[in-house]
Design a protein around this nucleic acid. Structure first.
Length: 620
RNA sequence: GCCACUGUAGCUCAGCGGUAGAGCGGCUGAUUCGUAAUCAGCAGAUCAGGGGUUCAAAUCCCUUCAGUGGCUCCA
């Protein structure tokens, strides 16, 4: 139940129009004015059903507490469903508010109640002293069905008091308290650390990737949607598709089975709702007839439910399910949104690995760690590493942590929690520092020791008994959108240093631009474009060569080839790279060079017309 | 969500109580050009939306929306 208390000079309300669940009232009660009262906007929620007595008790307790503080005996109970995103059945709410009215009267208050189930207009004058506006939430803890389940709400409430300490672990195996560590040789790690502990975040100005994604016609805001939902132009969509394909192919090679599950789930589903109620109001709601659905914020839901129904033997383990959540939805607070770094709808390759036991979980954790290292290299982004452990678990597995640090070959951050409040005992994160000194996580893997049991996922072991597996939550690329953010931010940093920006060759929307010296050579270029195994386009516009070069450079095109009489005669192509350096290649040499650059990466054709004169402008 | 800043042509910006401007881009024409900008002409604005103050509002005030930053948050 959610409550909003307002100490008012007066309140007037008028019942205008009935809803289906309206209670009957006489005409003379339609309009009301109450002087100097404590108004309680009251919202009955789904979870209050079945705990009526306890809700009433706590309601009165809150009411007494606040009326005491503001020194009033006059109460106005105002049923107001709009405080909640998961209202109860209307019939239940109606009965409950009537009950509340009676019980509050019994406590000796002077009570007025606005009618239930009417559209009402109201005027309220709030007093505006410090205590005059208070909100309260009544949450009834479910009856204990198992000790494990109760840890979830604790996780939320205690998160703030959660005690942890940061350390730095070097590849040599020295674990130093981060406060005492000398970061002078590890500036990037220092930036990451400061960001993590929430100090020194004086970043200013616009994040450069936003401007770049617009200028390069990759991605843009969509004013017609909700904040944090973006439109992807053909060039941006190409990059997205390639990132998605590359991660899918990596995971397929690793042995993951790709699946797809719904984007929305029933709010009232017993297990899911239990899980959800712990994360207040962070999801999009979809109302369909009488039912409420929420949009998934990760692939966990669909994969838990799939795992429940599967018959799994120890022989199948480790078992990996992979899904590209296109999209995951999180209704972040408006102030938390930031370009491609923090979105409300994003695409995330999400993998869950079921493991037999801890040794197997550690082995897979390590393999996924290595995959993540490879991913970061493939998108050529520098990153810092953080390990987060429950303290006891860390000291039981110190060798494992050291092995992780050694693989990276530079100092990494380690956060140790005194106790386990979350569902996982350890995780790693690969984070990037951006132009403004903010930090964002890409790759991450967590070892989950709780949810397999909570969701009834089990396997049959060699001795014939049913057991719950350990569960790894993995995203190798993190969010795809965020990968692009990381790439663009890194290029912005390069440009600031006076270097030229360039996308990784395999991700470039145009890899080769052919520039015919005059229109006479357009046809030759077209022929050449067919020959080259890359995304090749042709600047056939009626412009001078210098102009075409300039425009191609502004688009960050990796290879520029000017084609005229000379080339036609000699068969040699003057290949201009981003460095500005021009080298002659034969067609075969260039083909070979391109093939080598693309080896190991997925390929997609051009997503725009080959001839520049045929292309619309998506943005300035 | 709270606080602050921002919003003028497709883009970048000027104008900051008195007739909405420029450059780039676009379109049309000329030009057939050799490694970062060829020339000329034309079109293009609900000054983010709504309300108010004023003889008069892009300009001042209120409000809504959107963007960014900080706080909070990031399952």
């Amino acid at each position: 139940m959610r409550l909003l208390f307002i100490h008012s000079d007066f309140m007037e309300f008028e019942s205008k129009k009935k809803t289906k669940f309206a209670e009957e009232l006489k005409d003379d009660t339609k309009k009301h004015r109450v002087e100097e009262a404590l108004v309680i906007f009251t919202s009955v929620e789904k979870q209050d059903e079945g705990s009526k007595e306890e809700v009433v008790r706590q309601y009165i307790e809150n009411l007494k507490d606040i009326s005491d503080q503001v020194q009033t005996n006059r109460i106005l109970i105002y049923p107001y469903v709009h405080l909640t995103s998961s209202p109860s059945r209307p019939e239940f709410a109606r009965d409950l508010v009537i009950e509340l009215e009676n019980r509050v009267k019994e406590e000796g208050f002077e009570v007025t109640r606005a009618p239930f189930g009417w559209y009402k207009s109201f005027i309220i004058s709030a007093k505006g002293h410090p205590l005059s506006e208070l909100s309260r939430e009544i949450r009834i803890e479910e009856e204990i069905e198992g000790e494990e389940e109760e840890k979830f709400p604790e996780a939320l409430t205690k998160e703030k008091e959660l005690h942890s300490t940061w350390y730095v672990l070097t590849p040599e195996g020295d674990l130093t308290n981060a406060k005492e560590f000398d970061f002078s040789d590890n500036q990037e790690l220092a930036t990451f650390y400061k960001y993590e502990i929430g100090k020194d975040r004086a970043s200013k100005g616009d994040p450069p990737h936003v401007k770049l994604m617009q200028e390069l016609e990759l991605v843009d805001y969509e004013p017609g949607s909700d904040s944090g939902n973006f439109r992807w132009y053909p060039k941006g969509y190409l990059i997205k598709k390639l990132l998605e394909r590359h991660s899918a192919e990596m995971l397929r090679e690793y042995g993951a089975m790709q699946v797809e599950t719904p984007v929305m789930y029933d709010f009232a589903h017993p297990q899911l709702s239990k899980y959800l109620n712990r994360f207040p109001a962070r999801q999009y709601l979809v109302k369909s007839d009488e039912k409420n659905y929420f949009l998934r914020f990760a692939a966990c839901f669909g994969q838990y439910l799939m795992g429940q129904d599967m018959t799994i033997s120890y022989k199948h383990l480790p078992l990996k399910l992979y899904e590209l959540t296109h999209y995951s939805f999180r209704r972040e607070q408006s102030g938390e949104l930031s370009g491609l770094r923090r979105l409300r709808a994003f695409t995330m390759p999400d993998m869950h690995t079921l493991c037999k036991d801890l040794p197997q979980a550690k082995l897979e954790f390590m393999r996924q760690y290595e995959l993540s290292m490879r991913w970061m290299k493939d998108i050529s982004v520098d990153y810092e590493v953080a390990l987060r452990f429950v303290k006891d678990f860390y000291f039981e597995n110190e060798d494992f942590a050291l092995e992780l640090a050694k693989k990276i070959g530079k100092p990494i951050l380690v956060e140790l929690w005194e106790e386990r409040f979350f569902y996982f005992i350890m995780k790693f994160e690969f984070s990037v520092n951006d132009f403004l000194g903010n930090s964002a996580t890409l790759s991450t893997v967590q070892i989950d020791v709780e949810n397999a049991e909570l969701f009834g996922i089990s396997y049959v072991d060699s001795d014939g008994t049913k057991k719950h597996p350990l569960l790894l939550h993995t995203s190798i690329p993190g969010a795809i959108d965020r990968d692009l953010y990381a790439i663009l931010e890194r290029e912005a940093i390069k440009m600031k240093k006076g270097e030229k920006a360039e996308l990784p060759f395999w991700l470039s929307p145009t890899q080769v631009r052919l520039i015919p010296v005059t229109e006479e050579f357009i046809e030759d270029c077209d022929y050449l474009a067919n020959e080259l195994p890359a995304r090749v386009d042709i600047d056939d516009r009626d412009e001078k060569v210098g102009r075409k070069i300039r425009d191609a450079e502004k688009e960050w095109i990796n290879i520029i080839v000017v084609f005229g009489q000379k080339e036609k005669e000699s068969g040699k192509l003057p290949v201009r790279l981003r460095s500005g350096e021009i080298t002659d290649f034969t067609v075969d040499e260039l083909k070979k060079e391109i093939k080598q650059k693309l080896s190991g990466y997925p390929f997609e054709g051009l997503t725009l017309p080959r001839l520049l004169s045929k292309r619309p402008i998506f943005r300035g």
